[in-house]
Design a protein around this nucleic acid. Structure first.
Length: 891
RNA sequence: GGGCGUUUAGCUCAGUUGGUUAGAGCGCUACCUUCACACGGUAGAAGUCACAGGUUCGAGUCCUGUAACGCCCACCA
């Protein structure tokens, strides 16, 4: 035990312990058949990522869970890693190249990939290091990267299995195209944003007639790719037009009028332009009517040669120009404002272009089926539960997953083509020749896979799958996955499908969805808004423990978390409070040598009521904390500990102990000291998962590191029942008495405040106990009451008759009277008592009304009725006492 | 268009199977630099539980409807 410095220096302490933990491999776990495994796999942050508050929240939750399980003796493993984040990372490196005046096309594919790997080597560990600052107890020896050799092997294996099963196919379909990233996106990667656009009404002429019909569109530039106009087969207005020919404005192309069920005659004009290459519905119409799609744009969203004179224009520039030209020709009927949701690239926010394109897809329906079952039958639980429905709705309407991306950074699609014999096949390893005709000149598909095609395998690929490793056998399935609801579809749903398909087993049993971290105005934190709070800044300013504890106090299950800088003072202040409580104990230490908290035994001691009380409250706090942790109620768990440490231990027990330490009873001092060390050492163990650094520092600083060198390996506190506590002589009755004593002290303190007594002014108090028995107990306990009350002296007397001017207050244990020289304020005292009577009377009226209600008496449960009756009796008694007091004062 | 969430003190939020007088943190008021802690202590003020109905002996809590804000999903041009 070394003397604790007056101020806690978080930065140095945190760095010191994290380094020590790493050195001692405190977070490492190996398969061990004797121990129960408990596993979390991290949602791998992007290698391009820097730690934001969302990460801080997400990882604090995981760390609390894993440290808790580890302390309980489980074989706890938290597997860390990062995601290669295909598009995001490629964008970062492309921007870097752009600064050097280069594009990736100035480099060969291999050269470019070398650049990306070099970037990854240099910056890829940024977020990992930041996670360490937070205190994350990951097994860093197991750190994985989604493009590692092992994980790539898993990707290839999965691709080949699905390909051979026929669940992966290549199709020419309308996909979401980002013309800035020049790649296809999955449906999930296209973010719909409600946008004010326009609905343009354009006139198309009927061939050889004077008639014109009007079509409405939000994307007029796509008319250059129109191949027909569709009307509803039930629409009488246009019945005679079906089969006739229209002249497409500007281009003058002849296009037919077709009848199709898709058209809603009540929307717009009832005529729909059909552009099969740029709209999914139109594509379907095109198929039904055997119309050849015309693509009018390049990969970069530039109009192509099919756009005639508009070729070379950007799509939005073209839109503007085209509308101008149509206006000139008198072909615009009107332009209406129109709200609609428009897809945007989730990586660069560019407006997504629906576009016909040959891509690779996974047929998801067969994979979804068992994944729906696993959640429906409760093998996998969602917390909060409401996400179950969101999941099931999506899964039941699941659509095929577009997995090919036209970028270079990622897992290259393991499909090979032989041009000699037109053979196409998927292979786990790059083949040397065509397995059919033996030709060596084969080529691999140019595209790479969606990033999520590697992350959906994460819970088993990190353990070496497809090899049947010991790790995999021991640690899979994992237990809890903690994540934000934003990636329910991207990641969680797909992991469940992959786990069941490839492991034949769920990947985890619990999914905990936490909220989004927002600023104090409720806005999502984002770089563009500039409202982000940097967790590292908070760590620097307040400490990692403060950051963690504050976040946990603020995290109601599944609710969004609103933060500003000041919110983190909560955790900082709490840490300071704990620190000072420890210093207090050191300053009053009388035992020589350190105390082993695991060897403290109270069975041979006579515990005072306050000793018994704090021991009982500790067990209550342990129970509350565990219950709440088990239910993922992190805020309630944090609050239970906070309340115990601050409002029970510091406010009452430490204050009580001062009386003992200032007295001369050496035996008592030793006893109280042992109670303090027992309680404090258990409390910091309980707190360790939340605030790992300061608790480890105190574990050592207080000299508790005798049986367990680290707090991490110390036994987890036990929630003792009264039966257990009785071994030490703890009685429930006595504990209740101390609660009542606290109440009595509060009543006395209120009197002091009401009469403006300064702490130095000592008043004389008289207590008239409500019962003979309590009188006797109070007598024995009078010293502690006097100290906590700041009383000069206390007289306890069943027959005490107050002087008419004495202010008084009523508590459960008895009536408290205060006497101080020259203190006369009868009028104020009477007014105060009258106010109290009013409150009591309100209560009596309420209860009387209830009790006189025959329905209540007959229908409410007996114990509720009895409780009400008891309560009424108490209130009546209290009213009587108050009235008597008023009478005494009035005479 | 469909679904979900939120609405409780000045602010941010708890409030579990319906049951005493609805709680916390911050802020506010008064007093206190007392010997662990002013990042502190003691005491206190502060609420029409969004609104309207209903169920019930009893509703912040359950049901129906309304409103506001937020989120997710969706191929009506």
């Amino acid at each position: 035990m070394s003397e604790l410095p007056k101020n806690y220096e978080a930065a140095g302490v945190e760095a010191k312990w994290y380094a020590k933990w790493l050195e001692e491999k405190a977070f490492n776990a190996q398969p061990d058949p004797k121990k129960e495994p408990w596993t979390i796999v991290i949602p791998p942050p992007n290698v391009t990522g820097i730690l934001h508050m969302g990460h801080a929240l997400n990882n604090t939750i995981q760390d609390v869970l894993i440290r808790w399980q580890r302390m309980q003796g489980k074989n706890a493993l938290w597997v860390p890693g990062t995601d290669h984040a295909g598009i995001a990372t490629q964008n970062v490196v492309e921007r870097k190249l752009a600064k050097e005046g280069k594009s990736r096309h100035d480099l060969s594919r291999d050269e470019f990939l070398k650049e990306v790997w070099a970037w990854k080597e240099e910056y890829g560990s940024t977020i990992v290091n930041q996670l360490k600052k937070l205190g994350s107890s990951c097994d860093w020896d197991r750190e994985r990267f989604t493009m590692d050799e092992g994980l790539s092997k898993a990707v290839h294996e999965v691709f080949c299995r699905l390909y051979d099963k026929g669940l992966i196919y290549r199709g020419n379909r309308i996909i979401n195209w980002c013309s800035r990233c020049t790649t296809a996106l999955s449906d999930e990667e296209s973010e719909h944003v409600e946008t004010e656009g326009a609905l343009y009404y354009i006139r198309y002429a009927v061939k050889d007639e004077k008639r014109k019909i009007t079509v409405a569109t939000t994307r007029p530039e796509t008319m250059l790719g129109d191949v027909a106009v569709a009307v509803s087969p039930r629409d009488k207005r246009y019945a005679d037009l079906v089969g006739k020919t229209l002249i497409l404005p500007i281009l003058g192309r002849e296009i037919p009028v077709v009848a199709d069920e898709f058209v809603d005659p009540n929307f717009g004009t009832g005529c729909v332009k059909v552009t099969p290459a740029h709209d999914p519905n139109d594509f379907e119409i095109g198929l039904r009517h055997k119309l050849e799609p015309i693509n009018v744009m390049t990969d970069h969203g530039i109009m192509n040669e099919a756009a005639g004179t508009y070729a070379g224009m950007d799509r939005f520039e073209c839109r503007k120009q085209l509308i101008e030209d149509l206006k000139h020709g008198g072909l615009i009927e009107k332009i209406d404002k129109h709200m609609h949701s428009v897809g945007h690239c989730y990586r660069c926010s560019t407006v997504v272009e629906p576009r016909l394109s040959p891509q690779w897809f996974v047929n998801m329906k067969p994979l979804a089926k068992p994944a729906i079952e696993a959640v429906r039958d409760g093998r996998i639980k969602f917390v909060p539960e409401r996400w179950t429905k969101v999941y099931l709705d999506w899964m039941e309407n699941i659509r095929d997953w577009c997995i090919s991306r036209q970028i270079w950074w990622g897992h290259r699609i393991p499909v090979f083509y032989c041009d000699a014999c037109s053979h196409q096949w998927a292979a786990r390893e790059v083949p040397g020749s065509c397995p059919v005709c033996g030709v060596k000149d084969i080529r691999q598909d140019e595209d790479v896979l969606d990033t999520w095609f590697s992350s959906w395998l994460w819970p088993f690929s990190v353990f070496g799958w497809p090899e049947q490793t010991a790790d995999l056998k021991h640690f899979y399935p994992t237990n809890t996955i903690a994540t934000a609801p934003e990636i329910l579809f991207f990641w969680v749903a797909r992991m469940i499908m992959a786990g069941l398909e490839f492991m034949d087993e769920i990947p985890f049993d619990t999914v905990y969805f936490h909220g989004t971290v927002r600023d104090d105005q409720g806005r999502k934190m984002s770089k563009s808004l500039g409202n982000s709070i940097d967790p590292l800044g908070i760590i620097e300013k307040y400490s990692a423990d403060a950051l963690r504890f504050s976040l946990m106090m603020l995290t109601a299950t599944g609710q969004d978390v609103y933060v500003n800088d000041e919110k983190f003072e909560l955790g900082r202040n709490f840490c300071t409070k704990i620190w000072n409580a420890a210093r207090f104990m050191q300053m009053n230490a009388s035992c020589e040598g350190p105390l082993d908290p695991e060897k403290i035994d109270f069975s041979k001691m006579t515990l005072s009521p306050d000793d018994q009380h704090i021991l009982a409250k500790l067990s209550e706090a342990v129970r509350n904390t565990e219950d709440n942790l088990a239910r993922h109620r992190f805020n309630d768990a944090a609050l239970a500990m906070y309340d115990f440490m601050w409002h029970h231990y510091c406010d009452w027990y430490v204050e009580y102990s001062k009386g003992v330490f200032r007295g001369g009873d050496m035996q008592r001092k030793m006893e109280v000291e042992q109670v303090m060390h027992y309680v404090f050492s258990n409390a910091i163990r309980l707190l360790h998962p939340f605030i790992p650094f300061i608790t480890e520092e105190l574990w050592h600083g207080m000299g508790y590191n005798i049986s367990s060198d680290s707090i991490q390996t110390a036994p987890w506190p036990k929630a003792l029942s009264y039966e257990d506590l009785n071994v030490w002589g703890v009685q429930r009755e006595t504990v209740d008495y101390v609660d009542a004593k606290h109440d009595l002290i509060r009543v006395g303190r209120t009197l002091r405040t009401d009469y403006n007594l300064t702490p130095k002014q000592q008043a004389k108090f008289y207590i008239r106990p409500a019962q003979e028995r309590t009188g006797k107990i109070l007598h024995k306990d009078v010293a502690s009451v006097a100290l906590l009350l700041g009383a000069e002296s206390i007289e306890i007397d069943r027959d005490f008759t107050p002087d008419g001017t004495m202010p008084s207050g009523i508590s459960q244990l008895g009536t408290v009277y205060m006497s101080i020289e020259g203190l006369v304020n009868t009028a104020a005292e009477i007014a105060k008592l009258k106010k109290q009577i009013e409150v009591v009377e309100n209560g009596i009226t309420g209860i009387s009304k209830k009790l006189s209600n025959a329905n209540f008496v007959s229908r409410a449960p007996a114990d509720v009725v009895a409780g009400e009756e008891k309560r009424k009796g108490e209130l009546l008694e209290k009213r009587e006492k108050l009235q008597k007091l008023i009478e005494t004062l009035s005479t």
